[in-house]
Simulated scan of single mutants.
Amino acid sequence: MDLLSQLNEQQRAAVTSADGPLLILAGAGSGKTRVIAHRIAYLITERGIWPRNILAVTFTNKAAEEMRNRVNKILAGLELGSVPLISTFHSLCVRVLRRDIEALNAGYSRSFTIYDQDDTVRLTRNCLRDLGLDDKQLAPRSVQAAISAAKNRGEDAESYTARAQFIDERRASIARVFQLYEERLHKNNALDFDDLLIKAVRLLRDVPEVRERYNDRFRYLLVDEYQDTNQLQFALIRLLTEWQQNICVVGDPDQSIYRWRGADIKNILKFEEHFPSAKVIRLEENYRSTQNILDVASGVIKHNVERKEKALWTQNPPGERIRYYQALDAESEARFVAGKIQEHVSVEPDLRAAVLYRTN
């Protein structure tokens, strides 16, 4: 099986650097999904790693499905006996908890219910009502978002309440809701999405035999979009790599856009501190854009303080020069944007256009 002939030099290095910690800094459009899929296939076909000993985690079901499809296509026709686990963080945690949550001795059974966002907002609304709080002053959705943000920071209801007493009345009210919200989740044998990570981390941290089982099971770990991981996900990764450090993370600090939901860019910036023997490979050849676009993007992003240096380049033509338009007001800006869309659509009727803006 020829896995490497269609890869560039940096991609081949990323695929074949099998053992030990590896940070792949993958610029936009540099083929990172291809590299992850080929790396999984390389471990199986060239290194003889049993597929069930490989774990790849990412953030969305769509990304996980795309990765599975690519790996299956590469390995089509081979008799493997097992398959690598390619999963989202939350799906991985569900798998762990469905088997072992009772080992926490925290009053949960393996038949626990998972509350989605609608369920958690409904529960929050009921808690507000039963505490006699005005859901006009404290919107259920914003209260639930505050609870979720606290959980992602590693705060439980008690620590959130302790801090709330010294801040303001609104936060103190949210703390009361948080406590009742947690009590009712527990009473209903239910977990919200944040709990899936929290309980899985607690389980692996506090129950050595469970941690040992998963360290033995997953000998090679790959993490996509590493720049978007939060502290809970980082803790999960560290617990799963306690025995061995065959961990490959793929990401780009320049594409970190989820700090508002708890992502911690320091996870990728300090990877070499967390894993001192780490190797770093940069994927810098871009297959998506023209050089003019890359030059402008690089010229802007270089002013970021927290980043790792890389130089994106492409074999594509230079392309049109980037134009900058400064409107006098919002209305003239809207007319300009609408006019440009009409101009492009008149040439390409099936063109799909996107308008990006900073805030709602």
Score class of each variant (00 low, 15 high):
E242W: 09
G154V: 01
K199Y: 14
E169Q: 12
R141V: 14
K32R: 10
R321T: 14
R259E: 15
L97A: 01
A139Y: 07
R282S: 05
V223I: 15
L55G: 02
R282Y: 04
A327K: 00
T314M: 11
A327H: 01
A150L: 03
T124Y: 04
S346T: 11
L85G: 01
S148A: 15
Y325T: 15
A327W: 05
R98G: 02
I44Q: 02
Q6A: 12
Q227L: 08
P276K: 02
L128Y: 00
T33C: 11
E306K: 14
K266Y: 11
R170W: 12
K187F: 09
K73H: 13
E158M: 07
L80P: 03
F112A: 00
Q6N: 15
L133D: 00
T88L: 00
V121L: 06
D118L: 14
L92S: 03
Y357E: 08
D119C: 07
K151S: 01
A18T: 15
D192K: 09
Q233Y: 08
S148D: 13
G81T: 15
G81R: 08
L23M: 11
A63T: 05
V143W: 04
I301L: 13
T16A: 03
S91I: 07
N267R: 04
I36G: 00
N286H: 06
V280F: 06
I74F: 08
Y115E: 01
I281V: 05
V177L: 03
N69D: 13
K151N: 03
R98S: 05
E155Y: 12
F234K: 13
E285V: 02
A145Y: 08
D118M: 06
V210I: 15
M1G: 13
A162K: 13
